[in-house]
Design a protein around this nucleic acid. Structure first.
Lengths: 186, 186
DNA sequence: TCGCGCATGTAACAGGTTACATGATTGG
DNA sequence: CCAATCATGTAACCTGTTACATGCGCGA
């Protein structure tokens, strides 16, 4: 049973307990968003599709005062999730406009290349900080292995990128070739 | 003049000399692919759109024996490129299936979490190696600032990710201090 | 009562991949 | 001559975002 990209987060999140589409969106925005985003426009239709093929089922109204449809994973859903988790395939796609601009920065004055690097550095620092203040509390409360490790990866990745930019800025400003990330030769 | 995502690479590449759609695809696959991909299905229509709005113009058949349409950037194209490069906005999107699987790995036995980490580590090592052997020669030949710096970022990023995975594997295998794994049962 | 957050949904649009179709040229 | 590579293009399909529409319930 092939899971669609959004189906993967949805099913994965439902594996740790019943949730509504709204819940899923909220959790995604506080956890997987940086490496696996999802919007309402994908989540709600996907919940219907997953229910149609029997990987999840709706609990109907969950009894609260507010209209609310919660879904829970089925045995078939558990199997599909395990199957996906066991599959060797790991897509990895990156769209990094800072790198693209840097790639073309030779067409600009050095000052502009510096501006690009500073903007990228600042952005990574901002996101690393956001991870620490907004997401860490959420991830730390997870009782299972996973969320906290991934959060730490998020912090480490953004710190790496920010540091790389800072060193590149330094190399340009001071003609320093010896950053920790500089390639071996040269 | 708002550039579409694919329009940005296309225009940027044409800024360093006339090229055909085929050339652009080849260059992208050897350089920007890892942080800014593009397919023929986007490149050829985009070349027509950019020509329509006057940012590039076709040189017609370039005289070679083979049928071939090369495009060159116009003055308006140069301005549009500079404008985009100067804009403060930097999109950054990541889709990393290894991280998503890791996020849900608490539902699996520890051995499966290890398998995911090993697969991600191996993949990053493979890509870092590919950068060194395939892309570095290309980037090193660039006479402008940009390609080589970005290539080095690619190597550093993949080395960072591979090292992070290796360390996570180590923590799991050696039962290091992390409570996350002590609590792991499932 | 008013505004915010909860809650669900959809339609229009944008962007992208894949597979396919077509044909020329070059090197072994 | 045959396979690989050069070279261009399109149609079908998939995935995703954005903007909008709707309405309830709760607290100040």
């Amino acid at each position: 049973m092939e899971l669609s990209p959004t189906g993967r987060v949805v099913l994965g999140l439902l594996a740790s307990g019943p949730k509504s589409g709204y819940d899923i969106k909220t959790i995604v925005d506080f956890s997987t968003r940086f490496f696996w985003a999802a919007s309402y426009g994908q989540i709600y239709p996907e919940l219907k599709r997953l229910a149609e093929v029997g990987l999840i089922e709706s609990s109907g109204d969950d009894g609260g005062a507010r209209r609310r449809t919660t879904y829970r994973i089925t045995a078939a859903g558990d199997r599909a999730l395990a199957e996906w988790l066991a599959a060797p395939d790991l897509t990895h796609e990156l769209r990094d406009e800072g790198l693209l601009k840097l790639f073309f920065a030779g067409h600009l004055a050095p000052a502009n290349a510096l501006a690009i690097l500073r903007a990228k550095r600042d952005e990574h620092e901002r996101v690393a900080e956001q991870f620490r203040t907004e997401i860490e509390p959420f991830a730390a409360s997870a009782e299972r292995f996973g969320p906290l490790e991934v959060l730490r990866y998020g912090i480490a990745y953004n710190e790496f990128a920010a540091r790389w930019c800072a060193e590149a800025i330094d190399r340009i400003e001071n003609g320093n070739q010896h950053g920790a990330f500089a390639a071996q030769e040269d």
